[in-house]
Design a binder for these strands. Structure first.
Length: 565
RNA sequence: UGGGGCGUCGGCAAGCGGUAAGCCACUGGUUUUUGGCACCAGCAUUCGUAGGUUCGAAUCCUACCGCCCCAGCCA
């Protein structure tokens, strides 16, 4: 089964709208979308939803999707973010051809459109301060008052706007505003600001501009210039659609259809760029790519595959109702993809020694092992087997509970790809702690099976003591203890609910030799543990692995049930 | 109190007047050299509430109720 079969796109209200447009010929059958990030932070799983939606729809309808930076506010935007966003979208697997655009490339065009709007009598230069503009805006229930500068002549507006651009006025001293309706119930229509004066160095245009366009003015023009057909954005812009339409209608220019959908929320995490920045700046995580972050770079470092994220975005659907997706859904999608693609390997996290008393000393056998039982094409590897082995401490119990089929005194288990072994004895230190488990192995069970077809319920993973390599393993848990970190009690902040044990480091796990020098971002299944991914912190002789997600564990479930009784 | 939206299973989400898809989670069971995977079965007589229209309503109408967004020279 490949990704195509795993993906189950389904329909949604946006496709329904597009189908209608295609039927009526609104855009001559064209479908052209865009993903328009502002480079003021790194992309997260919520953006992935939008990316998959926009690029996915373009693909479904044999259309196009542009990557466009909405870089209209230089005080918050940085080249570092531009580079990171390009890297992340590409990593997710999307291709924008040669259509990488920047709103800043349209600044001159936008300026000319603004002059046009002034000439049409639909915009004016306003000398009110920011605070005065706010006072004039009115409130949710009371209409606003018109600016005293609202009725300047076209010529005066043209002159003033030109001088705004020329840098004759100080920052914040004047704005260009659209002349719409100060009594509109929709606040966005109360003579919105189109340009502000801000002397800030822009990552791309440098200091060549001191006036910058506002979102509402700029965004529709960007879409219009690129001949976008469907401008897909999140719900909070629903109130802005009348303004989006107003500007393009007033200019009598090409107008796309804006469509709004609900942004993604996932349990146990935060999704706003502001809060993610807080986590980074206040040192709660190591950076934007900390494996606990819901950022694309964090998920990547954690071991999520691009395919798994795309599958997730298909599964959650698209609608207009605010909703929060269960983190378990994301986990399910990675497991599903990694089960098919990740090589199996054996690693013992908490080792205890096993000695096979009837196995020849100084002998080493190489055992055949499937790399992936789901995919024979991934081949086999050889694992060294010898007299002294390490198994998981938790796989042995002196007095096992019912239904236990791991190792215990007198019990026979299978060592995966190895032999059947039976526990005969244990060795303790002076404190009474078990230090060694003595076992007999059955020479007839080489490879992990016998001719007599005897049933052995338990299968354990192991490594050979003489051949194992040390590895650092990083286990992660939810960053937040609350499924909704935003729903905090009065007087608390989301900071108060950060889980202290969200990162557990195991510095002396023992792994089979093939893991010695795996490249960063290689994904594995550590048998019976979960999916892990090589971290970039790895160095020769010191491999580091991040746990992406654990395997489902029905034994843990049974134990939980027993505890409750 | 103005404007704009949204309410279908524990969580997502189809459905668009013909009698409630699917996924996650959960619960049983089969299978198994991963207590994984896979497979089978169960899981909304009911669609925010109340009326109405209709042979027939989650879908149409009316009125309520609840939740979200908007008063940046942010996007």
């Amino acid at each position: 089964m490949n990704e195509k079969e795993l993906r189950t796109p389904g329909t949604n209200f946006i496709k329904t709208i597009i189908d209608t447009h295609n039927r009526t010929g609104r855009f001559d059958g064209r479908v052209h979308t865009r993903f328009p990030p502002e480079p003021n932070g790194h992309l997260h799983i919520g953006h992935a939803k939008s990316i998959c939606l926009n690029f996915g729809i373009a693909e479904d309808y044999h259309g196009l999707c542009n990557l466009r930076f909405d870089d209209t506010n230089p005080v918050k935007e940085e080249q570092e973010y531009i580079d990171g966003i390009i890297r992340d979208v590409r990593w997710l697997g999307f291709d924008w051809g040669d259509r990488l655009y920047y709103a800043s490339d349209y600044f001159e065009t936008m300026y000319r459109f603004a002059v046009d709007l002034i000439r049409r009598g639909n915009a004016f230069v306003c000398d009110l301060t920011a605070e005065e503009v706010r006072e004039h805006r009115g409130t949710l229930t009371q209409p606003g008052r018109e600016s005293p500068f609202r009725n300047r002549s076209v010529d005066e507006n043209l002159d003033l706007f030109h001088r705004m651009r020329a840098g004759e006025f100080p920052d914040g001293s004047r704005t260009l505003r659209a002349k719409i309706d100060m009594s509109a119930g929709n606040l966005n229509l109360r003579d919105p600001v189109m340009y502000r004066i801000t002397r800030a160095t822009h990552p791309r245009t440098g200091d060549s501009w001191c006036i910058y366009p506002m979102y509402d003015w700029a965004h529709g023009l960007e879409d219009s210039i690129e001949r976008i057909t469907h401008s897909i954005c999140t719900l909070e812009f629903e109130d802005h659609r009348p303004l989006y339409d107003w500007f393009l209608d007033a200019l009598e220019t090409y107008k796309p259809q804006q469509i709004e959908f609900a942004r993604l929320n996932v349990t146990y995490t935060v999704m706003s760029k502001r809060r993610l920045l807080t986590l980074v700046n206040e040192g709660f995580v190591s950076g934007w790519d900390d494996p606990r972050m819901p950022t694309i770079s964090g998920l990547r470092r954690r071991g999520y595959s691009p395919e798994s994220i795309r599958i997730f975005c298909d599964r959650i659907g698209v609608a207009k109702a605010n909703s929060t997706v269960d983190y378990a859904m994301l986990e399910h999608c990675v497991r599903e993809h990694l089960n098919l693609t990740a090589a199996r390997v054996m690693v013992v996290l908490d080792p205890i020694k096993v000695i096979l008393t009837n196995y020849p000393e100084h002998q080493t056998e190489m055992m055949d092992a499937d790399n992936n039982p789901e995919d024979a094409s991934m081949g086999k590897r050889q694992i060294p087997f010898s007299r002294e082995l390490l198994i998981e401490r938790s796989d042995f119990m002196e007095e096992p509970p019912k239904k236990w089929f791991r190792l215990a005194p007198g019990m026979e288990v299978r060592l995966k790809h190895g032999y059947y072994i039976t526990c005969t004895d244990v060795v303790r230190d002076t404190a009474g702690t078990i230090t060694e488990i003595h076992c007999h192995y059955d020479p007839e069970s080489r490879g992990g099976w016998t001719r007599d077809g005897r049933k052995v319920r338990g299968t354990l993973h192991w490594v050979s003591a003489a051949h194992a390599i040390r590895a650092e393993i990083r286990l992660y848990d939810h960053l937040f203890a609350l499924d909704d970190p935003m729903a905090v009690p009065e007087g608390k902040t989301f900071r108060d609910f950060i889980t202290p044990q969200s990162l557990t480091v195991i510095s002396n796990a023992l792994a089979e030799p093939c893991l010695a020098d795996s490249a960063p971002e290689t994904r594995f299944q550590f048998l019976r543990h979960g999916y892990f991914c090589t971290d970039p912190d790895s160095s020769p002789g010191h491999p580091v692995f991040n746990r992406t997600v654990g395997l489902k564990d029905s034994w843990a479930k049974i134990q939980r049930g027993a505890d409750e009784q």
